[in-house]
Amino acid sequence: MDLTHADNVKKSVKAYIMVFVALMALTIVTVAISTLHLSVRAAIVVALFIATIKAGLVASYFMHLISERKLIYAALALTAIFFLVLMVLPVLHYLEPIGN
């Protein structure tokens, strides 16, 4: 949706409210699941899965990534690759433990 026109913005306000409700609901779900005290592995997977959905909603609707220019997508794709490298770095520790 082209958000440079006031009419389209008016329509997207409804979407913002729905996203808000979804974010609140997912927050409640996250906290509720944490009270179950799942195993650490399961808890991490579930918590990060829900957090990723929430982050996706914020980025797509509030930050308008759902209808953005290609240049932004390209920059973010590059960022995502480097971010993944950062997250994988600690795992390399297992492949070659320090001191060996």
Binding site: T30, V31, S34, V40, A43, I44, A47, L48, I50, A51, K54, A55, V58, A59, F62
Partner: peptide, 14 residues
Amino acid sequence: DLVWIFLFPVMYLL
């Protein structure tokens, strides 16, 4: 807000 969405479960709930 996005950063907090990850910080909250990572620090408080796991």
